[in-house]
Design a protein around this nucleic acid. Structure first.
Lengths: 134, 134
DNA sequence: AAGCAAGTTGACGTTAACGTAAAGGTGGGG
DNA sequence: CCCCACCTTTACGTTAACGTCAACTTGCTT
């Protein structure tokens, strides 16, 4: 262990249940920016937050590129009026996409509800055909 | 065109905006089961429904394997009590997974809300520093 | 007959997201 | 001093999900 809000690569790996290879890969892709102590990587609070976001994005079905885009929103490049307006638009776009994704998932769930109904009907019919055990 | 509820490969491709290669690939993987007129594929209503489900699953971030699993739920293999019970469990599992996926997405959206707030604050500050145009 | 659009089967190429093995530096404990 | 656990870089391997030719057949149309 090094400082306070810092992590070694294996600490991060253990906490988020990923391999060290995965973490190095995310760094390669520019999604994490650890500092160095000689050769060794030192991950800070922001790396921790980024990794959390990446993995959440992954569970949500986002690609690393999409997660990177979201990460960049948290850390805007310019600071003038147009930049912020542009960023707000991007935020809205991304939110719309995520919401339409929720719709798709809800439709899948609705479909499963239909399957469940059929199952229950079939089970009822079976137990009606077999009134043996009562 | 052939019959009533049937489609050629390019009709399906056009309707769902995918390539014919994609459709053949899904057949290769056993996700679609077109009948044949000689060499030519003839897709029916169930193929149409499956393709719709596959693409919805894709937008939701599911792999083809996961979509296949869901498809198989619609068309149960056995028909005895245990089979239906087993299927009901699978349905519940999958639904739970989809719901937790929605949670992840909602957290991403919440994060975007934070970004939006920061943006708006920054914009307010900028327009406060520049009361030139009243 | 000739050609063109639409379909077919291989077969190899590509990208993303890592896995996995090789070969080596580095600080502490026995 | 030597081993061990942990870290490093380099590099090739792998899987999913198609893309992209190439080389045909088939049916219609001119």
């Amino acid at each position: 262990m090094a400082g306070f809000n810092t992590y070694t690569i294996s600490e991060l790996a253990k906490e988020f249940e990923v391999t060290t290879r995965t973490i190095r890969f995310y760094e390669e892709k520019g999604l994490l920016n650890p500092s160095r102590n000689g050769q060794h990587r030192i991950f800070g609070k922001s790396d921790h937050a980024c990794l959390e976001l990446i993995l959440r994005g992954k569970r949500a079905g986002l690609s690393l590129e999409e997660s990177r885009e979201i990460i960049q929103m948290y850390d805007p490049e310019g600071d003038n009026y147009e930049q912020y307006q542009f960023l707000l638009n991007k935020v809205d776009e991304r939110q719309a996409q995520l919401e339409s994704q929720i719709e798709d998932i809800n439709q899948l769930i609705a479909g499963l509800g239909e399957v469940r109904n059929r199952c229950n009907s079939a089970l009822k019919k079976i137990s009606a055909d077999k009134p043996a055990n009562k």
